[in-house]
Amino acid sequence: MQEIVRAEGLRKTFTLSKKQQRIEKTGETRKIAVDGLSFSAYRGEIYGLLGPNGAGKTTTLRMLSTLIRPDAGDAVIAGHSVVKEPDKVRDKIGFMTSELKLEKFFTPDYLFDFFGAMHGVPKEKLAARKRELFSRFGIDRFRGVRVGDLSTGMLQKVSLVVAIVHDPAVVIFDEPTNGLDVLTAKVVTDFLLELKAMGKSILLSTHIFSLVEKLCDRVGVIIDGRLIAEGTLQELCGEMQLEDKFFEIYRAVKGEIV
C-alpha cells in the first residue's frame, strides 16, 4: 500500500484566555490540543480519526489542511510538507468542514469556476470536470441558482463538489455528518464512498461509531491529543463492537467516563 499521508510528532498548543481557564477549571495558561501525534494513511483508503469532543481531531485536520501551523512535528501529504510547502499541500487536498462556507450570493456554476481558478486548474480541464461532477451529483439543474436559494442537501453537494474541483489526491473531512439531517447525511456518506471508488484517499474525523463502521478502512483512536490505538476495525475491535472497544480504551486512559 502506498502511503499518501504521514504525520510525525504533530504537536499544537493554544493559549487559554482567563475565561477559557475558568471554563476548563485550570490555572494553566496553555492547553496542549495535539500531543506528538503520528499516523499514516494510504492511497485509496478511508482513514478515520475517532475521539470525543476536544480530543484534538479538528486541530489535527486543520494542521493537515495547513490552516494552522504545528508547533512541532510535520506531516507529508502527497509528497509535500505541511510546514515547508503549505501552498503545494493545498493543491493536493480538498478540505471540507462546517467552518468553510460558500458565498450565498453566487451560483454553483460561478463558484466552481472561481475555486477552479484559485487552484490554478486550466479552463478546458475545469469545464470537463464541471460537466462530470455536476452531472454525477445532480447539480446540473441548479447550476444557475444562487447558493442561498438551494436546499440544504443540494448546498452540501455543491460544497463537496467545489472542495474537489481541482481533483485532489486526498480529501480531508472534519465531522462529515455533524448537524445534518438524515437525507443530507446520506448524500455525504454516499459521496465519500463514491470518492473512494474514484481512487481518492479520505481522512475524516468523527465521534460517531456507526459512521466509522460504515465508511472507514482503518481508524485511529485519539484521546487528549494522543493516538492511543490504530488499525482496521478487525484489528482494533476483534469480536467486540467498536463502541464497547472505544469505551474500554477510554477507561484505560482516563479512568472514569465522566
Binding site: 493545498r90 475555486f115 484559485m118
Partner: peptide, 17 residues
Amino acid sequence: GEKERGTLSTILATSAP
C-alpha cells in the same frame, strides 16, 4: 462580512497566495 460568514476561510484553504 466574508470572514464572519466563513467564506474567506474557504479561499484561504486554496493555494492562492
